[in-house]
Design a protein around this nucleic acid. Structure first.
Lengths: 182, 182
DNA sequence: TTTCTATATGTCTACTTTTACATATATAAA
DNA sequence: TTTATATATGTAAAAGTAGACATATAGAAA
């Protein structure tokens, strides 16, 4: 049971999902490919934290729909309450900024503009997720309170939105700082 | 030559440093332990990107002071100009926020308060680094322009400061959102 | 009719990262 | 005098991650 396993339990505690859907849904929360996810699902199924049902589909290939078990929910509950490890951020841009004096002004500018563009496209994705979560909240007749299943997701997506907005602001500020050198 | 190798070259392009010092200095830029760093230094030395000089010390154990070579600088220059890969952020808090509805209000509050404290202590570290970089800039008689060796570091540390301030603001906002549930 | 894309599930290898093991010098504190 | 801490350099094993390999269904487009 590593962090990613708990992440999968986290998603399954809100909805029953297939491995494929988990691979898509986990993207805004954690970077992981399907080659990591399928083996963990099999292992957690063997440990009794999740179970699956084979869903036969006519329009698409059949799938395994995983659900969290009582044991899995109990395991997750304990983990959520334990303090969170400090985040791990690995960003090449940090090194490239540090070595910026080695580059030509156009290349420094390009580096920051490309990052800004990336963050803007991420921001759009998160704003869509925020909307979708609000729709789900209304569907479930929930309000903005801790016990609502959509509340934590609301906080999380807001966090990612703030992170991206802050990154975009940094890039734009840095581009201005660069201006006199042009 | 992986990203961490280029990170070590980045630090060595500004100053000659030992493996131990590199391990300390790289912390604000990238997470890496000394067990990763020493083997990479040996490999880069064999490839001719860096060289070292044994420094005998009377007050401390002897050390190897690594310097970047012309070949290393050329290699680094090419890498810096290539576009930066998207950042990889792995934060347990994302999952814990998503599963927040499973917890008691005090535990949710504790989770956010602890993260805020962590970010505040990181912020202090970065502010010290920012001051140290300004002192170095003055010592070298540099101004805030691209060609100055302290300029990129100035941008980078400002980025980290903005990141931490944004995280602290998120925690404080989320704690307020949590309030009515108490 | 072939090709492309999305859905769907898996394995394998290479690489990276973490944690523990291992050793050694010098200073400072208990 | 033992112990703890900071400095200093390495190795080994285990765990985690990324990218490629592998296969299959179904719909849509060329």
């Amino acid at each position: 049971m590593n962090t990613l396993s708990y992440g999968l339990l986290t998603l399954l505690s809100a909805n029953s999902l297939s491995g494929y859907e988990l691979t898509q849904n986990i993207k805004p929360l954690w970077r992981a490919g399907h080659s990591q996810i399928y083996p963990l699902l099999m292992s957690m199924e063997q440990q009794g934290y999740i179970s699956y049902q084979l869903i036969e589909q006519s329009d698409k290939p059949d799938k395994k729909e995983y659900s969290i078990t009582e044991a899995g929910l109990e395991q997750l509950r304990k983990w959520v309450e334990a303090p969170a490890e400090p985040p791990v951020l690995r960003d090449e841009l940090h090194f490239k900024l540090y070595s910026l004096w080695l580059t030509k002004p156009e290349e420094a500018k390009d580096l920051l503009q490309k990052r800004a563009e990336f963050c803007k496209s991420e921001l759009e994705r998160y704003k869509v997720l925020l909307k979708a979560n609000e729709v789900l909240r209304d569907e479930r007749g929930e309000t903005r309170e801790l016990k609502a299943t959509t509340f934590g997701r609301y906080l999380l997506i807001r966090k990612r939105v703030l992170d991206m907005e802050s990154s975009i602001q940094f890039c734009e500020w840095a581009l201005e700082e660069l201006e006199p050198a042009k």
